[in-house]
Design a protein around this nucleic acid. Structure first.
Length: 568
RNA sequence: GGCCCAUUGGUCAAGAGGUUAAGACGCGACCCUCUCAAGGUCGAAUCAUGGGUUCGAUUCCCGUAUGGGUCACCA
């Protein structure tokens, strides 16, 4: 660069940023290298405040937090609010809260709306304007950035012409009009008060290939960047590309974890890091979470898919650990094998390996999530289940919360059925949302409601072909049972009595034998018990009916059975 | 359309130049059964495609197809 030109560059830089006096060197001092042990990863979650926490973002945050913690590093949160048009009020509050729900609170950065901690801040991009300007000024001085006076209309026109002529669209080379105007003209036009943006002067060529090592996918080969991307927009704020480079350098991020949709723009970032003379961080491009759409898959859509919002899982009442566990299986599928071998160890003891991450997007498998969740809940004590349901219902299902609170001791007993000390634990809860339909019959009002809304379930019983049931049979069974019902009998006796009665009414008490000789019987002991069960609970599958009757108490059992008989 | 990434059962996937190609979810059957569950056992089901390289390829290379992503003063 000749001396004269260099001088002009400085003049231009000063003209554009007259109030910026600090230099990049000053920033290097202000934000020194972090004092961390060798191999410690500094990661970040950098959302833009445009709504809620996205499931894909939960996934990357999980990776972020985990690799930071397993290497003794730092996980911080930065708000990327450089697009004021898209900003949604309350977003920061929402996703810091949601992050907290999933136990992914960052150690540094924005930890709540308007609350920041750490030495590398501010952590909100709109408050870092000067920092970007210092860096942009630096590039202008070096002749690596220039003001561009093109209007959006001009750009659009040029873009159209490029596509029509089948050349790579964009602002580069001969198509970069303002790149090629003389520096004197630039200075003149800035002085005249023309509106402009700051563009990067790329020295690359898209004919050349560059490659970089991705920690998850290995070597990625891609065309070099040659686009003169916008660095500073006309509103004075930086674009994502520039902010990413500046922030992740000065916040000393070591691992940039982001979705694979960012791969195509990585050359821009590499180009920019290079121009600034910064060391590039390690990129970790994680697979996208897909959803089935007809016969094909697509990226989870914020608008179309309710599962795209983390709030969906919270509202449905999935324990957050279940969601996290499921996500772990997507990060490293050997997690499942590890989990099987280490049933009680905390999830954190499993170290994730970035290079074992799948590189193709995976379908969100709700069945699998359900299974993990069901398994997890089955390991909880009744007290834990109750506490969790109370916490959940307080927010998402107030009526249920009230009902459970009427008699906490009774509620606790309900969730203790076939759970505490049981040899075979019942696995019928997937998520807290299921509570109502699984346990309604323990509460008289809900039980009545179910009969009013859905009628007695005898009807569907009768529709089963193998059974020769009709109202008379059911009535007969219930009446006779009522006559022998003894609430003081122990379980053995209770069942023996039940069996005896069943046999006398032509029900087979031996399942094996029944299968061979269906014609000889009205039904099996199972069918017989089902009638009792439906009369008492109006539900075909419930835990052990004996225990339910004990819990409900004689009065309720008798009155419910009588009511059922009247109904027939 | 250019560029990028991907492709092992319905889903998540392990895997190595020669394997009976793990495991999990789901599905089915059977067993158990003192109801409903749970549990146990077994089973069906996969290397997208064409060409190389090789004694041998699902595994390596190239093409094709398919899917996804990306091409803004959005991130």
């Amino acid at each position: 660069m000749d001396k004269e030109y260099e001088k002009k560059c400085y003049e231009l830089a000063y003209l554009i940023f007259p109030d910026i006096h600090e230099t990049v060197e000053d920033l290097e001092i202000r934000y020194p290298e972090r004092n961390l042990p060798e191999g410690a990863a500094v990661t970040r979650f950098a959302p833009s405040p445009t709504g809620f926490l996205h499931t894909g973002a939960l996934f990357t945050s999980l990776v972020d937090k985990k690799i930071a913690s397993q290497t003794g590093g730092v996980f911080f949160l930065r708000i990327e609010d450089t697009d004021q048009k898209r900003e949604v009020k309350g977003s920061v509050e929402l996703f810091t809260k949601e992050l907290k729900d999933f136990d992914l609170v960052p150690q540094e950065g924005v930890i709540a709306e308007g609350k920041e901690v750490g030495d590398y801040g501010p952590y909100t991009q709109s408050k870092r304007e000067d920092i970007y300007k210092i860096c942009a000024k630096h590039l202008i001085e070096k002749g690596l950035a220039y003001p561009c006076f093109c209007t959006p209309e001009m750009l659009e026109k040029s873009h159209e012409a490029q596509t029509a002529n089948k050349v790579v669209p964009g602002y580069y080379g001969i198509y970069a009009k303002c790149r090629n105007i003389s520096i004197d003209e630039s200075i003149e036009r800035v002085k005249n008060g023309e509106k402009f943006v700051i563009r990067f002067r790329s020295m690359g060529s898209h004919l050349k290939k560059i490659s970089f090592m991705d920690a998850a996918r290995g070597k990625i080969e891609i065309a070099e960047n040659d686009q003169d991307v916008v660095l500073i927009k006309s509103d004075g704020l930086p674009t994502y590309h520039f902010a990413h480079v500046v922030d992740d350098h000065f916040m000393r991020t070591t691992h940039v974890v982001r979705g694979e949709e960012w791969i195509p723009s990585t050359p821009i970032h590499l180009d920019l890091f290079n121009a600034m003379g910064f060391v590039t961080p390690i990129y970790v491009h994680v697979p996208l979470i897909l959803v089935k759409d007809g016969n094909s898959k697509r990226k989870l859509s914020k608008r179309k898919d309710k599962e795209a919002a983390v709030a969906y899982f919270l509202k449905a009442g999935y324990p957050t650990e279940a969601v996290l566990e499921y996500l772990y299986t997507l990060i490293n599928s050997d997690y499942e094998i590890w989990r099987k071998k280490n049933k009680t160890l905390p999830r954190d003891e499993f170290d994730i390996k970035l290079n074992r991450m799948s590189s193709s997007g995976s379908l969100l498998d709700m069945m699998k999530l359900n299974d993990i969740s069901r398994e997890l809940i089955s390991k909880m004590s009744s007290q834990e289940v109750l506490d969790r349901i109370l916490a959940w219902s307080k927010i998402y299902d107030e009526p249920l919360y009230q009902i459970l609170n009427r008699d906490l001791e009774y509620s606790l007993k309900i969730f203790g059925l076939e759970r505490d000390h049981a040899t075979k634990i019942r696995k019928d809860i997937i998520k807290w949302e299921d509570i109502q339909e699984n346990f309604f019959y323990f509460f008289d009002d809900l039980y009545q409601e179910s009969i009013q809304n859905e009628g007695y379930q005898f009807d569907c019983l009768r529709q089963e072909e193998r059974m020769k049931l009709n109202c008379d049979v059911v009535r007969d069974v219930l009446e006779k049972y009522l006559a022998i019902y003894d609430e003081n009998a122990d379980k053995e006796t209770w069942f023996a009595d039940l069996k005896k009665l069943a046999a006398s009414l032509s029900f087979c008490t031996d399942m094996k034998f029944y299968k061979q000789n269906r014609d000889k019987y009205i039904g099996s002991i199972s069918d017989f018990a089902t009638m009792i069960r439906v009369a008492v609970t109006n539900k075909k599958n419930t835990p052990d009916i004996y225990s339910i009757m004990q819990l409900l108490g004689k009065d309720r059992v008798v009155s419910r059975m009588k009511e059922a008989i009247n109904h027939l």
